[in-house]
Design a protein around this nucleic acid. Structure first.
Length: 470
RNA sequence: GGCGGGAUAGCCAAGUGGUAAGGCCGAGGUCUGCAAAACCUCUAUCGCGGGUUCGAUUCCCGCUCCCGCCUCCA
């Protein structure tokens, strides 16, 4: 079993990852806040987490994957009310949409997908523990805050000295929060406000709702225990979200929290930050409107290393299509050598011992999830295969290729089905073929021209032809 | 101001103390009545200036520029 090595944000080094309990790799990924369609930047994170899980599983490890749904916060409350929906109706709609997009991107569903609202009691229990241990306090209005100065390790993940955490450092001050003892303190429980509408819950501190950071700490504990293998999210979550999670969890349990931290760098669009005002917050639907499939998007998202900002362009989607067609041709070549077997299932590939000429590509994934290197090594192996310089076991190599593709989660395009070609086009193509056999070039060319006009392309093979959409 | 990540061919993007993977695009070739596909070949000395070294794109220092975080953003 190849060892899995991954960069750890906490220690800032690439470290080997092995299940703490010797059996199952348990990890938590911060999920979406469901108040609108997720954009491809969000999906970069989820796709890379998926590649991580697949690589672990294909290496022979068992996994336990938890990813939450944040279904209560300022934005979900605000937007649900604006649309005259209950919070549940609103978040259910966007959760469903999120799941649809995940499926289109071939993301493995997490083993557990807990939501904040479904875990209010666990969150309240966590706050009670924190207050009991002197790490939290109640303010005048009934909100509860975490007492940051009471937790010496605060800032260890983001390497931000707590002295530097001063309000207004970035130019925007929330002068609303007078109740905090220290500017670094953050809300565990937010007292009910009129604008929250029906969205409040009873608690020992009065009516209100949980703070954002709290849900993850509570649900990590619920599904993975106090200490588990890995915690992941976008790079922007390092501070303050993950820093706060560590504070809440460690201060309440007295145990180590996540053993390893996995953060994914941001996606850029056309060299700059994505933003609504620039109109470059692409969703899967947007891209499909432009004729780019979710798989092309997935390929584009894994074409850069997860620790580097990735520049996303429409050109990268076109490149992805071409690259996948190339992979598909090679896969068909191997399949034909084997006499048209069915593609192996994901389960068939788990813990595969010998990946043949694709072993280096798979190894690249095991080495800090180097997806671009894995793709490069895959194409390099392909070249050797086709030029016959890599003699070997075809079946072994075919399975090896599928292991790499499965780890990346790529589903290759199938050759165009002939069935949806219009009868008229089919007839013209056949007529042309007959003319060609008779060496009647003028008629053959006329037929080709006509077919082209209709938006189709004829490609001749050795003993026949294929028609495809132009 | 603090912390962090970058700068590699037309575009995207790996990597290494010993003269730089891969994909896309482009050029040439084999093949082909045409067209396409397929296959082969070709295209960079790695932001700037110093230093260490037999040798640096890779290590160190300085500089320029870019980006992110420091506020409930993946």
């Amino acid at each position: 079993m190849p060892t899995l090595r991954l960069h750890d944000t906490l220690t800032r080094e690439v470290r080997e990852l092995a299940p703490l309990d010797g059996k199952t790799l348990r990890f938590y990924c911060c999920g979406p806040t469901v108040y609108g369609p997720a954009h491809i930047g969000n999906f970069r994170t989820f796709v890379l987490q998926d590649v991580f899980r697949r690589t672990a599983e294909l290496s022979g490890m068992a996994t336990l994957h938890v990813r939450n749904i944040t279904d209560v916060d300022d934005k979900t409350i605000r937007d649900s009310q604006a649309q005259g929906l209950t919070l549940e109706e609103f978040t259910n709609y966007w959760s469903d949409r999120f799941h649809t997009d995940c499926a289109r991107l071939n993301l493995l569903p997490p083993h557990h997908e807990p939501s904040a609202i479904d875990h209010i009691p666990q969150q309240i229990a966590l706050i009670e523990q924190l207050i009991e241990k002197g790490h939290a306090y109640q303010s005048e209005d009934g909100s509860v805050y975490f007492n940051v100065p009471s937790f010496p390790g605060y800032g260890c993940l983001s390497h931000l000295d707590t002295r530097e955490l001063r309000t207004g450092a970035s130019g925007a001050v929330d002068s609303d929060e007078y109740d905090k003892d220290s500017v670094a303190d953050f809300a565990l429980w937010k007292a009910r406000k009129t604008e929250d509408g029906a969205n409040w819950w009873p608690s020992p501190w009065g009516e209100g709702r949980p703070g954002w950071h709290l849900e993850c700490s509570a649900m990590c504990r619920q599904y993975l225990g106090d200490t588990f293998d890995l915690h992941s999210g976008g790079i922007d979550l390092i501070f303050p979200h993950h820093e706060n999670e560590i504070a809440q969890s460690v201060a309440s349990s007295g145990q180590p929290f996540a053993a390893h931290w996995f953060h994914i760098a941001h996606l850029m669009v056309d060299g700059g930050k994505m933003s609504k005002s620039l109109g470059n917050l692409h969703t899967l639907d947007d891209l499909e409107t432009h004729g780019h499939s979710p798989m092309e998007t997935r390929y584009a998202l894994v074409s850069g290393h997860y620790r580097q900002p990735l520049n996303f362009t429409f050109q990268s989607l076109s490149d992805a299509r071409k690259a996948m067609e190339k992979l598909s041709k090679a896969e068909q070549f191997l399949r034909e050598q084997l006499g048209q077997p069915l593609a192996p299932s994901y389960e068939d590939l788990l813990g595969l011992e010998d990946r043949g000429i694709f072993e280096p590509a798979f190894l690249a994934l095991s080495q800090d999830l180097n997806t671009p290197d894995a793709l490069g090594k895959t194409f390099s192996a392909l070249r050797g295969l086709k030029s016959g310089t890599a003699p070997g076991d075809i079946r072994r190599d075919w399975l090896g290729l599928h292991a790499v593709l499965s780890a990346l989660g790529l589903i290759l395009p199938e050759p165009e089905a002939a069935s949806d070609v219009p009868a008229e086009v089919l007839a013209l193509a056949e007529q042309r073929w007959q003319a060609k056999q008779a060496k009647n070039w003028a008629e053959a060319d006329a037929c080709r021209a006509r077919v082209t006009e209709l938006g189709w392309i004829i490609k001749d093979g050795k003993d026949g032809y294929e028609v495809s959409k132009s």
